[in-house]
């Protein structure tokens, strides 16, 4: 039983798998960044699209992962492999500590608070706190991944590592959507009072979304820092957060294909139109408005009704 969506998914997977074979290195870099940004956008979508929390500071978690890897590697000489776990755990911990006191705030208030965290994060980086972050220039000379004497140093290696990370992320999202955790997030999103009355601890599941989203974004950040072998604050500022926020809504919140399309539209398309340097973002802004007017729920909106087949038998 093969439906249309899974056919498209498989075709895309095959295409992405062989992508490095027929592009030059510039496009390979774009492809790798597309994969990394997709992971970040999907993790943003856990918080925004699933739990329905207005979160506009996701670049901070992405940056925390990147800087954790960079600091541990450049300043303390740890191998990249050893920085992976901290790069996931640090954003999770920060998410918990920062978000727990404000998780009860109503939508727009939470939105500006998360923007605030992102701005504070950038100031911490720029002011080179404890001499660790390298200030406005950031940190350079991040190592490549080395396992048992083998160096994953080429661009193609980077691409496939990002590909695997996206695969893992999609696997997690699929499990999330088919578990009581993902469902609880949706219930909270759609009607908080009804969800509470069904025994759902709103605070717990909103925090769960934040912490899981932060961890995945941190993993992507770690990969991003290795890809460019450098990190600097402007890659993780509020403008980037707004981009991830927009990717989710333009693509279709809570929809896996939607978020991937969103990343393509918001990141890869502008790369394709680089020659129209100046007018590029003007057109882009118009496109954002038109997309929302024509597809208010995104280009590929989420479809509910993902239930086991045995329950569909009675459906007429």
């Amino acid at each position: 039983m093969m439906n249309k969506t899974s056919l498209i998914a498989i075709a895309l997977l095959v295409f992405m798998g062989f992508f490095p074979l027929f592009v030059d290195s510039a496009w390979l870099a774009v492809g790798t960044t597309f994969l990394v940004f997709s992971v970040v956008a999907l993790s943003q979508d856990i918080i925004l699209g699933r739990a329905g929390v207005f979160h506009m500071g996701h670049a901070m978690f992405f940056g925390l992962g990147a800087y954790t890897t960079a600091i541990l590697n450049v300043n303390f000489g740890l191998p990249i492999l050893a920085t992976w776990a901290p790069a996931v755990l640090v954003p999770m911990l920060v998410a918990f500590v920062m978000v727990a006191p404000i998780i009860h705030l109503r939508g727009d208030y939470l939105l500006v608070a998360t923007i605030g965290f992102n701005i504070i994060f950038i100031q911490v980086l720029e002011n080179d706190i404890f001499g660790l972050t390298g200030g406005p220039n950031g940190l350079f000379g991040i190592d490549v991944v080395r396992v048992l004497g083998f160096d994953f140093s080429s661009q193609t290696h980077m691409y496939y590592m990002a590909f695997i990370l996206l695969g893992i992320t999609l696997f997690i999202m699929r499990n999330l959507d088919k578990s009581k955790f993902g469902r609880a997030m949706f219930y909270i999103h759609k009607d908080e009072i009804a969800a509470q009355s069904m025994g759902i601890n709103v605070r717990y599941f909103k925090l769960y979304a934040f912490i899981l989203g932060a961890g995945i974004a941190g993993a992507a950040g770690s990969m991003f820092s290795v890809q460019y072998s450098a990190v600097s604050p402007e890659a993780f500022n509020v403008t980037q957060s707004i981009m991830f926020f927009t990717i989710v809504l333009v693509g279709g919140s809570a929809s896996l294909p939607g978020v991937l399309i969103g990343t393509f539209v918001m990141f890869v398309l502008p790369e394709m139109f680089r020659e129209f340097e100046t007018a590029r973002y003007l057109v882009f802004g118009v496109a954002m408005i038109l997309t929302m007017i024509l597809r208010p729920r995104g280009i590929w909106p989420v479809r509910f009704g993902n239930i086991p087949d045995f329950l569909k038998k009675g459906v007429k």
Binding site: T246, Y281, M292
Partner: peptide, 11 residues
Amino acid sequence: SAVVSALGAGL
């Protein structure tokens, strides 16, 4: 959706 439209308008 209107927020995204506003962000687009800002651009």
